[in-house]
Design a protein around this nucleic acid. Structure first.
Lengths: 249, 249
DNA sequence: CACCGTTATATGTCCGGACAACCTGACCTA
DNA sequence: TAGGTCAGGTTGTCCGGACATATAACGGTG
């Protein structure tokens, strides 16, 4: 066992898509569709490279990208094995809007507040701007199926995005940030819980004292600049965070 | 600007530690200590390789590992830049015990229950074993500074670890799993919140109805086998999850 | 039968080179 | 001045090869 001679890969050398990427995509598809059985060996890199007319470094690069995704496991002296998957999604930096939309929940947004305000000490520290300097403050209510799901408060440096309320009602904040040509890089998050205040309860259609899930997040672009600080509250009865994480070897 | 001729790297070719790893460690240390200023360019790979007496692929491998960690950013045609850090810890698969210990919180554990039991449908599905088959069930109370922090309930396949109560009181579950020669690979988590029941409140020294942070986690080893299913409850007043996540490019 | 060394096999590391694609800034032109 | 063009510099991709090292299977030895 261990060989998969039936598997076909089509590589287009005239394509601008890198060869290693073409291969990794097709390997991933084969794993996804079960054409590469979980637990089976992939066949050694040398032969694979020869069969595909590629060099071994190129094949290794393709395999490595899938190892990084958690789909494959390499064992020295043994081979490269397809993982019994079960899982997916290694925790992406996604917006609640996209999550809800992907789940078919018909998200909607109501913009409650939208103005530039002087930064509080907390916001200034998170965004790395002077305290008291002007920042954009956006307060939104996120609905799913017409029911309130979360109360979202975001602070952004001024002039970063074209965030007029109309566009914020139509899509998620992250899409607007990306559309402004900003490359998101990383985020620092804190997830906790607390009891609803009377005002929060009224906003989210929960009784006072109901448990709420809180999330604070500072997002950075690829220059290390903070581009957004969010302070969000979710109805614990309706929402939870779900994600997968990989062990860094 | 952009060059760092002062930086010295010492590479030991007789060491069993790979050269790219030696280099990446020293680069990381230099970034950590500020000897490589945030935002500054690293200097091109070709020269760096020549200066160090290494090949470019080796230098690239070192740099790439730091890019994957989020410490560096590459820009084609520009160079490799040190990120304005601010952050660290890209969300590891760590145990609460280690987290508390690292924070100097003097963790302690009280084992409440420790026995093999037939798996419920929920546990069986998570662990991938037949419903009703025997699994190890461990129930613990985690304390910090003598105060209860969390109530931990874990189910594990039988025979996986030597988990006698005495050892569980001394250390975290993950350490025992790793000590059993198991290579942790990934985990699937769900984080939510709910109100404390009277029993939970009594256990955790919280009033009934107090908000609690909940976390369910199934952990897999590098063969894809589920090795642990945990169902945990944390005092929201004392604990929150904090982590960093990277955007996959 | 149990133990241990040998051997085949696979990935891990490293090299040196080549060309392509992209970004920036300087220069030229309308 | 405004715009486009071009050259230089840097990372991205890809090649072919070499040797090291971990693993498992085999087979010999006590």
């Amino acid at each position: 066992m261990a060989n998969h001679p039936a598997l076909q890969f089509s590589l287009d050398r005239s394509s601008p898509v890198p060869l290693y990427y073409q291969l990794s995509q097709q390997l991933e598809a084969a794993i996804e569709q079960g054409r590469l059985a979980p637990g089976s060996l992939l066949g050694n890199e040398i032969d694979l490279a020869a069969r595909l007319g590629l060099s071994r470094p190129t094949v290794r690069q393709a395999i490595q990208s899938l190892v990084d995704k958690g789909l494959l496991v390499r064992r020295r002296g043994v081979g490269t094995q397809v993982l019994h998957s079960q899982v997916r999604r290694p925790l992406e930096l996604s917006s609640l809007y996209d999550d809800l939309e992907a789940a078919g929940q018909h998200p909607a947004t109501r913009v409650l507040h939208h103005a530039t305000e002087p930064a509080t000490a907390r916001v200034a520290a998170a965004l790395g701007v002077p305290e008291g300097s002007e920042v954009l403050f956006v307060e939104r209510l996120r609905l799913a199926h017409g029911e309130p799901m979360a109360h979202l408060r975001n602070h952004l440096p001024v002039g970063l995005i074209d965030a007029d309320p109309a566009r914020l009602e139509e899509t998620g904040l992250y899409r607007l940030i990306r559309a402004a040509g900003i490359t998101l890089h990383s985020a620092r998050q804190t997830v906790g819980a607390r009891a609803a205040t009377p005002e929060e309860g009224a906003r989210l259609a929960e009784p006072e004292g109901a448990p709420l899930l809180t999330m604070e997040r500072t997002t950075y672009d690829d220059t290390g600049r903070a581009v957004e600080f969010g302070s969000h509250v979710y109805r614990a009865s309706r929402y939870s965070f779900e994600f997968q994480l990989l062990v860094r070897p």
